[in-house]
Write a protein that binds this DNA or RNA. Structure first.
Length: 536
DNA sequence: TGTATGACTTGATACGACTCGG
DNA sequence: CCGAGTCGTATCAAGTCATACA
């Protein structure tokens, strides 16, 4: 807890572009303890028969057993991927025995792991690193034990992520401060690259992506970049009009690729779309961003409910979160979209076949230093928040925090940040509300019929109680609806903390009521600046 | 010029700690 | 005291984007 507070934001920039540090010292990542074999009493059964596995195959089996409650173990792709990778760890003779995963009984193992509590102690010596002599927290210093890939919609779900050994790890540090590898091991590589901020890296076996040990969000290296991000997003205000003007011109261009560029930029600038890079076929879930929209993802409504032209978007966005919105657009955008849709009868064709993220970025780079498509998303989010905070607070001064959340919610909605887990509660709650409503009308009828009877008072009370109950349930339902939105992502990654701080100071709201401890750590630079007059 | 890779950046969720009505 | 719900952080998957590569 007693950490030195390094106000790096008050220092003059020390490094030229591309250099991040002079001295970098750390102890390398912490490795998980080795696998402990099952006691003799715990067995795996195949087709009712006891099977003895070698240590590696048993370990991989344990990964599946631990997940037995998880719905993914009923998912066909997950099971298939797991089974393939699992069999690869078995000896040839044993492998022969395993013809189908259905025949494997993991229940005894699963029960064993449920009983067994894992209480691994956090090792203090690995949690920190020294940056130019200052002690800083590391974000992720534990290397995960082997596991099964759990991407929700990923074709790789169920595949084995193999054990990571020191020999797989590259260390990045100062020249004379190489951490000691675990006994009996060596580092895969050691490098001294001050152009990057990571401390260690390794490649996960599935799906073969590089992983990094990175500084904590509150560290200088991360905070500095966050700050810079908001400064870039902020400077977009000086160029936005001009960019919009150019897009307008492009809508009328003879050149189809320019028309497409103009429309794509309009969508990104107006609805905060992600750029939509190409995804590798068969390696990732089939999701889209702006450039990767397909014809089938947009429906055009010429005269929707007597209103102006509207576009209906319906596609899977990042992390397979559905994007479903109906929005008004300008006439010329509408006409262009109409034309771009023409060639793809079956709807599988790319909507914007003449633009891609590279083209877009080359163009944007020429308009403003540091401008990329995601800058628009940040910019719009910040503007929205600032505006919302201004609007809302006049009316809701009584409850400042909830009016803050209201503004935050608008940003989350803009960014389509959702949570998906609460469905079950939602429908259960709806059932409850239905039931409660029925009971209430029944009670009311009874009351009418009873008119002057002796038990009128009692019935009246019943009605009152039911009404109260229903009101509470309705309120809860509204809260549940709000929970479909995820406010955290926008708060952490999109809203300039200085906007929030200025609001806190103005309305005398303690920062602690808005940001949690970890968030205050991440935004320490903005909190310390303490600028009431900040304008984005 | 397009594709692959590396280095961040953004995203939802898992999970343990805490809280609260019963 | 207890189980359900909530909160906060850690975790790890899935994006963006610059650069290396062919």
């Amino acid at each position: 807890m007693e950490e030195e507070i390094w106000k790096w934001w008050e220092e003059e920039p020390k490094y030229e572009d591309g250099i991040k540090w002079t001295s970098l010292r750390h102890n390398g990542p912490a490795f998980p303890p080795p696998y402990e074999r099952l006691p003799d009493t715990i067995k795996l059964y195949y087709n009712g028969e006891l099977v003895t596995l070698n240590s590696e195959a048993e370990e991989v089996a344990s990964l599946y057993a631990k997940m037995l409650d998880h719905e993914l173990t009923r998912d066909e792709t997950f099971r298939k991927n797991f089974f393939t990778d699992w069999k690869d760890t078995m000896s040839p003779e044993v492998k022969e025995v395993f013809a189908a995963l259905d025949q494997c009984d993991f229940r005894e193992m699963a029960a064993y792991y449920k009983r067994k509590k894992t209480n691994e102690k956090v090792q203090q010596e690995f949690g920190y690193f020294f940056l130019d002599g200052h002690k800083q927290r590391i974000g992720n210093y534990n290397i995960s034990p082997p596991g099964l890939f759990v991407g929700r919609n990923s074709p790789n779900r169920g595949k084995l992520k193999k054990k990571i050994l020191p020999e797989d790890v590259t260390i990045n540090c100062s020249e004379k401060e190489i951490p000691e590898p675990p006994p009996g091991h060596r580092w895969g590589q050691v490098q001294h690259n001050p152009a990057v901020i990571w401390l260690a890296s390794w490649k996960e076996s599935s799906p073969g992506k590089l992983k990094y040990m990175m500084p904590h969000a509150g560290s200088k290296l991360m905070g500095e970049m966050d700050w810079k991000k908001y400064e870039v997003a902020r400077s977009l205000k000086h160029h936005r009009d001009q960019i919009q003007e150019q897009s307008r011109k492009d809508w009328d261009s003879e050149d189809k690729s320019l028309r497409q560029r103009g429309v794509v930029l309009y969508l990104i600038d107006k609805f905060a779309f992600r750029v939509g890079n190409k995804t590798k076929d068969g390696m990732t879930a089939n999701t889209s961003g702006c450039c990767s929209l397909r014809v089938k993802h947009v429906t055009l409504h010429e005269d929707h409910q007597g209103e102006t032209k509207k576009v209906e978007f319906n596609f899977m966005a990042k992390s397979s979160i559905p994007y479903k919105k109906m929005v008004p657009v300008e006439e010329k955008v509408f006409r262009n979209l109409q034309q771009f849709k023409e060639k793809g009868e079956r709807g599988e064709a790319d909507l914007f076949d003449q633009v891609n993220p590279q083209v877009l970025h080359t163009y944007l780079k020429g308009l403003m230093k540091g401008l990329t498509t995601k800058v628009f998303r940040t910019h719009i989010a910040c503007i929205t928040m600032e505006q919302q905070l201004k609007n809302l607070t006049h009316h809701h001064i009584k409850n400042k925090v909830s009016s803050f959340n209201e503004a935050n919610r608008k940003v989350a909605e803009l960014c389509n940040h959702q949570r998906t887990k609460t469905e079950l509660h939602g429908s259960e709650l709806q059932d409850k509300i239905e039931a409660s409503r029925d009971e209430l009308s029944l009670l009311k009828k009874k009351l009418e019929r009873a008119t002057q009877g002796s038990n009128t008072e009692e019935l009246k009370n019943d009605v009152k109680r039911k009404e109260d109950e229903l009101r509470k349930l309705d309120e809860k339902s509204r809260m549940e609806e709000n929970k479909q939105l995820n406010l955290n992502s926008s708060k952490l990654y999109y809203i300039d903390p200085r906007i929030i701080l200025a609001w806190c100071i103005k309305w005398r709201v303690p920062v602690e009521e808005i940001y949690t401890e970890a968030q205050r750590d991440k935004f320490a630079w903005a909190i310390d600046m303490n600028n009431e007059n900040f304008e984005f």
